[in-house]
Design a protein around this nucleic acid. Structure first.
Lengths: 202, 202, 202, 202
DNA sequence: AATGAATGAGGTTTCATTCAT
DNA sequence: TATGAATGAAACCTCATTCAT
């Protein structure tokens, strides 16, 4: 075994993670964080610049990896869109591995520089979605519709994260959501094509 | 036109709605609200009991109507599940009509007595979903899966609300989401049935 | 029956009496008083100059009568000190008749111009006590001792007031307290005389 | 002399004691307390949890000792009631030694968890009184009468505390009050016995 | 490496009071 | 007569932050 004892910095981070997850960045209290780490309030400022820096230290790495991953996945998807479901599973694995940090970014970052980070991620996913749609379905699909469908899928996966599932369960559910989404997609493109024909007949 | 001028109470409510929408209940500041309504801080307490009462006054009516509507819809759906899509549209019309109040209930109510209100609404929708699933598809569908799919659909509609669409656009998108969801549902039940057969063959 | 309906002014006074008795002058709230009288806050200022004036209107008359009574009693006692017990009973009757006003003066007047009123009354009673002592007992009795014994007796009677006794009960207890006090007085003067003799023998 | 300088915490306590003694807990102002200790308002919350905790820190120890003492004295008195006067003196010494804290408990604790503390102490003293009465005098004495006589004696001693006496003076006065009270007690029991006989003759 | 002390701004709430109507 | 509206000061409390040690 490596070391049961956490360094003070680690204790601080752990306590902060808990507090921010429970109350968000703005409503999280440094006092409570420090108390939870067995320190006095001032101690934070030895390890971190300020409250925001403490928060960022929790999510920075995860955010960077996520950004990079998203970049890779966007490229792939542009080249070989049929990998969509695999990507989904891979993404989900990542999210699950960094569960708490992702939740911090997703729901607790208001007031920090990561406030808009997830929204940005969602935008990229939406872009990939758009490409996919245009290539395999309805070239003239409403951009807003796509935005929303993308959002739906992302949110579904994040909801999964909030629940208390085992990795296996989560993956299983992810796959089923994938099936659902694909079916939904086909239905929608079919409907759109039919509508288009109707319009053209006139 | 009768009167452009709002009563002080109305100014207060308007300012509060803005503040709470922007920052949520807990982080919304009475000082800013009052300043925004052109008053000093103490003035709130002439019109409202306290901060929470101010918030509740914004959403109370909408919440009550929503509760009632949900009750009606649950009954209908139990009797004639095929009305699902119509219900969706009707619900969406309601949400759209009470756009800001619904958003307050959905995202800004933490710390008030309406904190769990939307979750309760979601629960009812999920129950309706479950009935639908069991009747028309997979009797043995994972409850968690259903929970998540229901969540997806609800969230999608709420995302719509956050966007800046016209009523028409919103309705159109709602319908398309309905098509998507139905297709997804059929795909999923089909997959589940097949899987079941496979298992039985063994 | 004259009139069930109280005038607004009377309702105000009644509500104020209740509030001040329960919380004292300083902690009593005009808002609550007005609410209790079925009015809005500003209304007080039509009937009274300010919070203190409202309080004073409750006790003024009683205070004046009490002052006068005290004057009379001091005179009598100077002339015919043997009337002590009768005075006590008469005083007690007065206190009982003006029960609530006396309690207001006694315990709830801090912050008003009647803040020191009761103390003044006590001083007069103490003076009367002193005269009595000097005439019938120990000319050289410690003034402080007398102050305290007087205080004891007065307080006992006021405690009686706070309790929830019927007039009869109260009078009965007053008499018994009188017996107790007289006996105490005789014991004390006897002891003092003996001590004096001892000192003189030396 | 080691150190004239008080620690900030001590300055705060001293200032609080003064303020609470002068105005009571509820009307005492943290602002004034802090100003009196040469600090800003927020500083209290470094040393104490809140206003009540500050108050309690002033009286906690004294209250505990007093409770213990009372327990001991009640036991003694049950076994050997003739020790009454000694108990009185001992109690008085204690009260005098903790003068300001006792006054805080007695007159300034409304609104704190010590609000009913002294009343509880009085109840114990009254119980002791009752036992004494039943054993040595009038078995059928009115409980209310006893309550009041006990109150008288206690109050007398506390009045003593409020005055500005030296310890010696205070002890001397306590003893004289004891003589007074004993004499009063004898008078009263004698009167009660006689009355009883009268009733029985009929 | 961390504490103990303190600040100053801001939070919500309560209050007595005023005043036009 | 009395209301409805509003003020402004003060209340207790919490917070992020600073800094000497």
């Amino acid at each position: 075994m490596e070391s049961q004892e956490l360094t003070p910095r680690e204790r601080l981070l752990a306590s902060a993670r808990k507090e921010f997850l429970a109350r968000g960045f703005q409503n999280g209290s440094l006092r409570r964080i420090c108390a939870g780490a067995g320190m006095t309030t001032g101690a934070v400022y030895f390890f971190f610049e300020n409250k925001e820096d403490l928060f960022c230290s929790l999510v920075r790495e995860t955010a960077e990896q996520m950004e990079q991953m998203m970049e890779e996945m966007t490229e792939w998807e542009l080249e070989r869109p049929e990998t969509g479901v695999d990507s989904d599973v891979r993404l989900m694995e990542f999210l699950y591995f960094h569960r708490e940090e992702v939740l911090l970014l997703h729901e607790c970052a208001r007031g920090t520089r990561y406030e808009g980070f997830m929204e940005e991620m969602y935008d990229r996913m939406r872009s990939a979605f758009l490409v996919f749609f245009q290539k395999y379905g309805a070239e003239d699909a409403d951009r807003e519709l796509i935005r929303i469908l993308a959002e739906m899928r992302i949110r579904a996966n994040l909801e999964l994260l909030k629940g208390d599932y085992s990795m296996e369960q989560a993956m299983d559910l992810t796959r089923q959501i994938g099936i659902y989404a694909d079916g939904g997609f086909r239905s929608l493109t079919a409907a759109m094509r039919k509508e288009k024909e109707n319009r053209e007949e006139k």
